[in-house]
């Protein structure tokens, strides 16, 4: 899986570091002073993750919990994301990470206690009249490697008794091994990003197929874990509507609409840099054939009537299946 593991000298004795190092005994372990001395120091081509992926373990410095951009989650409440990892083992061709860190290497930050302390301060500041939302999975998949990183019990312990805070674990994986051993909590929501099976095949390279993700959702639902959905990014194709109809039909066979906490909808969009990276890394991706334009704000996206039509079409299908309108929100859209 990894070519080498680089660990910060100061993080060596941490049990989480030791656990990972023990798990990957057969590959070179290299002691370094600071992650940033190596990671992102040079431009490492993104697709080298296929043959030469390194892992870095260390402590995250600076701000650990940040406010999300507008229209990120259900409106009205303050939303934050926290950074406990960089990069992802999957290879979605539209992923913004390919233009973000200048390296596809994985980074695990082990100072979760400090992240939790920052969360505690934020919750205190926001008071009990607001629900503070914390999202994991902004720079990495929050479940894909959770059996190796092992931080979930810590977050479950912290959130379980909080009445004015929610934790969202975003994932494209079906790795629910760790979650299965944890007692569900009403305010810890596992949100699955889904696309029609044809789109997963075309764009979500190396991710589990739709059926596997649906089965994982069903298992967690039966265990009592709250489930949410992200239909994001939505990509246009000739049989767009029928693909989404088929996907949502399958979905609601596994989990009933009323069991879903919320569904976010977002149409594919890129910054100019990410789009250029994507063109370089995936020149034959079907995304390039799908009527993208350079928009008013410099971002590459579909024109407004098309975006809105796509969102409305999926929203209507969800409503037909009995999803309540207040559970649907448009992510990063006006």
């Amino acid at each position: 899986m990894f070519e080498k593991i680089f660990y910060e000298k100061d993080a060596f004795s941490n049990p989480r570091t030791q656990y990972v190092l023990n798990k990957f005994k057969g590959i070179p372990h290299v002691e370094i002073s600071k992650i940033e001395d190596i990671f992102g120091r040079v431009k490492k081509p993104y697709l080298q993750k296929r043959t030469n992926l390194n892992l870095f373990i260390g402590e995250k410095k600076g701000q650990l919990v940040k406010e999300t951009p507008n229209a990120y989650g259900l409106s009205g409440d303050p939303h934050y994301y926290f950074i406990h990892s960089y990069n992802c083992i999957y290879e979605c061709d539209y992923c913004y990470l390919q233009g973000y860190f200048h390296s596809p290497d994985l980074v695990f930050f082990i100072n979760h206690e400090e992240i939790i302390e920052e969360m505690r301060q934020i919750i205190k500041k926001n008071g009990s009249h607001k629900t503070s939302w914390f999202h994991a999975g902004e720079y990495s998949d929050s479940l894909a490697l959770s059996h190796i990183t092992g931080e979930l019990p810590l977050y479950f312990d912290f959130f379980r008794d909080l009445k004015s805070a929610k934790l969202e674990l975003r994932t494209k994986s079906a790795n629910i091994k760790e979650l299965k051993s944890l007692r569900p909590s009403k305010n810890i929501i596992v949100s699955f990003s889904l696309s029609p099976k044809e789109q997963i095949k075309d764009h979500d390279l190396k991710t589990p197929p739709l059926e596997t993700r649906l089965k994982a959702m069903e298992t967690l639902d039966k265990l009592g874990h709250p489930i949410a959905l992200h239909l994001d990014p939505i990509i246009f194709c000739d049989d767009f509507k029928s693909q989404y109809e088929e996907m949502l039909e399958s979905l609601f066979k596994y989990i009933s609409p009323e069991r879903i906490e919320y569904i976010s909808l977002g149409v594919v969009r890129f910054t100019k840099d990410v789009y250029n990276q994507m063109k370089k890394n995936y020149p034959s991706s079907k995304v390039h054939q799908s009527e993208l334009i350079k928009s008013f704000d410099g971002k590459v996206r579909y024109m407004r009537p098309m975006r809105l039509w796509m969102l409305q079409t999926i929203k209507n299908i969800c409503l037909l299946y009995g999803v309540k309108e207040e559970k649907l929100y448009l992510c990063m859209e006006e």
């Binding site: 098309m306 809105l308 209507n316």
Partner: peptide, 12 residues
């Protein structure tokens, strides 16, 4: 006008 508005706002 309503039809034009619907088209521009992506109303199916």
């Amino acid at each position: 006008y309503k039809q034009i508005k619907n088209l521009l706002n992506g109303i199916p």
